[in-house]
Design a protein around this nucleic acid. Structure first.
Lengths: 137, 137
DNA sequence: TTTGTATTTAACCATATGGTTTAATACGTT
DNA sequence: AACGTATTAAACCATATGGTTAAATACAAA
């Protein structure tokens, strides 16, 4: 299986995401990792194997312990993939911004009812800092 | 299943990622989507159902066509999750940079053997250009 | 109404996933 | 050597996944 698929499918489980979260604050033994969960040790062991295959963790050997350490590299690749789509969800705000800017314009002309919400600063400001991409008509 | 798990497991398949890529350049019918692949139409239909359940696509109805449209919102959530780990993979480069900068310093003092590899520009420069992703203002 | 096109459903198959319980293994300590 | 602890392996089970082919459905056009 390709690396991206391995990464995403490793992340597609809340237990495994929780394990990564735990490891983000330092390496840990299998028992330490298992402690917060209400499942058997072998189940955790299997999850760790999945994470290891995805290279999201690396394991050491110290006496009878196999400490696990987080390896973020695959996350970087996953992030790079998702990154491609960033503007797709930013666009949404752009259109909202455009709409709100228009409202403001009208407001300046005194065409909006007195009680209309003030949409000016927080959101409309984003229109300047967000890159826009045109969508097909 | 929780939304993040749905999203990641939907992304954990190259066919589905390719479908999303196709849809990022505009909506398409099932047949159009299926064209590039060498698998049966029902297989594609199933993939679309997975994407739909994860809310990565939305479907319309026009005559006998059910056009698919990309919805990036879940990607934004996935991105936000991964974001937590960003510094984990940036740190790594920071340390590498620090090390290489140090090497350069020694090199400047003439303490490195004549044949030593020149590590100067390409990598050490990264220390300045490594982008810490733009966060919300 | 018949035919053609687009798409989904049904039934089936093989393999993967996530869990269990019961051993087995590996190492440090007594 | 025997024991205790940490971890994995084996065998098993239920359900999910990713694919197939054949049939059913929905709509447009002739």
């Amino acid at each position: 299986m390709d690396r991206l698929s391995l990464t995403f499918s490793a992340l597609a489980d809340p237990t495994r995401r929780a394990i990564l979260a735990r490891l983000s604050s330092g390496a840990a033994s299998v028992n330490e990792i298992a402690a917060p969960f209400s499942m058997s040790l072998p189940a955790i062991s299997k999850h760790l194997k999945v994470l290891e295959r995805a290279q999201l963790i690396a394991r050491g050997k110290e006496a009878q312990w196999r400490p696990c350490e987080l390896k973020a590299e695959p996350l970087r690749e996953a992030d790079a993939w998702i990154e491609q789509y960033r503007q797709m969800w930013e666009e949404r705000f752009d259109r909202l911004d455009a709409y709100l800017m228009e409202l403001q314009a009208k407001s300046a002309e005194g065409k909006v009812a007195p009680g209309a919400p003030s949409t000016k600063p927080a959101v409309a400001k984003r229109a300047k800092t967000t890159k826009t991409k045109k969508r097909k008509p």
